[in-house]
Computed example of a mutant assay.
Amino acid sequence: MATSRTRTRPPLAGALVYLESRKNLAGSACGLLGLALTFTGLAGPYWPFVVAGLYGAGALIAPPERSEAPCFPDPAEQLDALRADFATLRAYLETVELPPAAAGRTTELTNVLEALLDPGWAGGGLADDPEGMHTLARAIRQDIPESVDTYVRTRWWTRITPGTEPPERHLERQLDLLHREAEKLAAALHETEVRRQHTHTNYLQGRVSDGP
């Protein structure tokens, strides 16, 4: 029998949240005003309705509750997590037997990725490039593991169905494409650093030219 996994908030917890809400605080303040009118005799015999009405009015005019904005990991934390995933990927690749050509391409690719993740060099520029970080994360967490795992599974079937295209050819093409993508990312990060250097040079030249 299927069961629902929807979690409902306990009634007591919901009541406590409302007690601390702006609507209840504003309504209570207006309700106290109604009690003050009752004690002074201004509310008359209808004081329960006056108190309830003022409480409701205060709850209605109170500003709505503001939800807290979600807190996501900063770029430095994302890079640390990506480096940990890259270490996991390299450990996995060491357990897989690849043909020489594919193994060489894998080494070239992982060397570029390692350089991109180096905390002392390209890592700083990568943290300022969300698209680049997404590209790198996709390669490490999805593309490379899927390429290698698909090769391993296809190779097993090729043994019992000879005559088909060798799966290592597809693997080599995939690794070549991923290597080109990683080099393109590295070139873009390098270009960013070059522009930053030129900008700083122009700033210094302008500061000296405008000086006394």
Rank of each mutant, 00 (worst) to 15 (best):
T154V: 13
A29F: 09
L16H: 08
L16S: 07
R105F: 04
P166S: 09
T135L: 12
R105S: 11
L19C: 08
R138A: 10
E97I: 07
V194W: 06
V148A: 01
T199Y: 08
A122C: 07
C71E: 11
A87F: 02
G211W: 15
P10S: 08
T164I: 14
L177V: 10
H179T: 13
E131V: 04
K184D: 14
E114V: 00
P162F: 06
Q142L: 12
T88N: 11
P48F: 07
P45G: 14
S67V: 06
I160Q: 12
A188M: 08
E114S: 10
V17E: 15
R153V: 08
E131F: 03
F49Y: 14
A13H: 04
A187F: 08
P45L: 11
A137S: 15
R155D: 07
T38A: 11
A2G: 05
T88S: 12
R207T: 07
E191M: 10
R159W: 05
P10A: 12
A26F: 15
T135P: 00
I144F: 05
G27H: 02
A43W: 03
D85H: 07
L25H: 14
R9H: 03
Y92I: 00
G56M: 11
T164Q: 14
Q142E: 11
D143V: 05
I61K: 00
T154S: 11
T158F: 05
L117V: 03
D176K: 08
V112P: 01
G211I: 03
M133F: 10
K184G: 15
R169F: 06
E191H: 12
G120H: 12
L178A: 08
E146G: 03
P145S: 03
